[in-house]
Design a protein around this nucleic acid. Sequence first.
DNA 1: TTGTAAGCGTTATCAG
DNA 2: CTGATAACGCTTACAA
Lengths: 382, 382
Amino acid sequence: MAEKDVAGPQSPGGVGNRRATLKDVAQAVGVHVSTVSRALNPETRHLITPQIVEKIAEASRQLGYQPNTAAYSLRTNRTRTIGVLVPDITNSIFPPIIRGLEDTLTPRGYATLVVNTDGQFEREVAILETLFARGVDGLVIASAEREDSAIRAVAARGTPVITVNRRTDDPSIASVINDETEGVRYMLNHLVALGHRNIATIAGNQALSTGQRRYEAFLRHAVEMGLDVSPTRVGFASTFNEADGERCMEELMARGGGFTAVLCANDRLAIGAIMALRRRGLSCPGDISITGFNDMAMVDRIDPPLTTVRIQQYRVGAAAAELLLERMTKRSEIGKPQHIVMPVELVVRGSTAPPAQTSGNAAATRDLKTATRPAKVSVRSV
Amino acid sequence: MAEKDVAGPQSPGGVGNRRATLKDVAQAVGVHVSTVSRALNPETRHLITPQIVEKIAEASRQLGYQPNTAAYSLRTNRTRTIGVLVPDITNSIFPPIIRGLEDTLTPRGYATLVVNTDGQFEREVAILETLFARGVDGLVIASAEREDSAIRAVAARGTPVITVNRRTDDPSIASVINDETEGVRYMLNHLVALGHRNIATIAGNQALSTGQRRYEAFLRHAVEMGLDVSPTRVGFASTFNEADGERCMEELMARGGGFTAVLCANDRLAIGAIMALRRRGLSCPGDISITGFNDMAMVDRIDPPLTTVRIQQYRVGAAAAELLLERMTKRSEIGKPQHIVMPVELVVRGSTAPPAQTSGNAAATRDLKTATRPAKVSVRSV
DNA sequence: TTGTAAGCGTTATCAG
DNA sequence: CTGATAACGCTTACAA
């Protein structure tokens, strides 16, 4: 509870009330502003006599000199600012990505301007407009759709851009995403190991790479595993949220069921699915196992704790920042990977269990196999 | 899945590849740049002949003119940028506040630069330094401590500043906070109505206004209600997180218990408390009722669903933005409230119930009264 | 190694 | 009402 004490970020010198400028430092040392500029810039410091550099450094410290960002930008056309587009910062999968970005960008002198698109294309366009007006040096886009003409326009314009979490279908747009395919495979493996043979899925928005890739992986691997993937066991969500999960689950059950597990394209859909189940008086995982994707904050504490695929949000952000920095400095270094896929891991919790043995009270479950397998695994790393 | 199509934010005109400047527009219309500047600025537009204004507007539209922010800033010393300090964007109570800020600031032409302090004072100071270097026009601080010399320094410097969610002890620093006192009173009322007479508390960090105010309110209202507030029934958390909640709950139980409910200073402490309880083989609310504060995302879905106090995070952010805008434009308008307190509401869920009737298996519960009251209320608005 | 000077795109002051 | 001009603070050829 001790008072926080500090010299404080207020004028620790300066001239009068103004912030100190290069000219002030130059005057103090008795050299020209250009000399000060060079001395203070690591790139050009070597041009200046070490003693003078020292004197300049001292004086600028004394005066509390801080370069004027506006002047720097006006002159160099660079702002050391990165625009970050997210669908909605309120969706808890994005903040960790943003921190990953910030934590690697800030030490390099870059600031991030985070804006919300709410998944609306017109907003995305308008936002990009204002970001360009502010002269961002690069863009990180977490709101990318598979066909995203706005992003293509940005790239065509020459602004370094990278998508995170999702990617566009255009391979020339750099990206950092998660290994959706493997994630789905792990999950199917897990369900099959528990004894499930009749697995439905609630797929996400197919206009987003996450939705599309997870669904595609489901189809591919389910077939490989010899599972029945009839279209009646597929629900398509358009919004990746709880309401849509609920709706899709109801649809699936209305179509007659016959499945013992539902693989959902993300955690929020899974939560909705569980609610729908409950409303019908069914239990998870007693009657039906439900799985998520992302491992959002708190899904380990909900009832039942969600079995899901953990993605490395923070590291996705950090990797994207690194990649972007490279593309902004070394001019389009060839040979560097343009697409990074981060590994994911399966997290087994309470929302999955072996299929019910009896045809019991679960209206949606029929066609049960008898196979039973190891009941519970803790967090399994892959 | 239709391709998103748009003219795109790329050069819709411009000159060559460059962004169009005032000079370009001036040339196109055949007037001087200063005329264009005046015509485009609403404040000075009246100085220009309407026909010319129209021509200029048209040409600037045609050329896709966007004012250069850096030049504007250099000239005017204003950046239309607001710095926002939060402890950690990953903590889900902050994103809604940030959206409230953004949604009211963006339409007014301001951008927000959000940075994380991680609750470290040195980081806060360093961050303020870089924000000033970038020339922010104002500051919104969600990471304020009660005694915060850095914030005082900012205010002394003349930069408009406002704290949100928390406030400093210095009444001259404007703030928008929640009604902690009423929140605690509602909660105590609720617990007493359920029949609890022996209520413990896990207080938050007393160096933060939230922690201090909630604790003070607990003491005051508990006394008013004639409850026993012995110090053995108070635990002090230092970090407002689950781990500390767990630790405090264990401490409370180790001291011998005797309470039937625990009022926690926020939701995360409550979650930790529930975990500690569970580890001892006790149940919530069967053996002990636990309450939170904030109504964080997802606490309605955890097990048990948390009874808590809902704060209006989004509106806190929006109100702070309004207040800040006022203080930035109308020069320190007197008469306007400097401190806004937002109303809160009680949300009753599953983590509270009447105290156990028997001295049962609950090691921590004794001294039970017999009063029982209405068992469950749904969301009650106040 | 250092100084000179131009110029980035605006806005504001001062004439006309 | 409009034009000319300076200045904001910095970087960067080009000179010396």
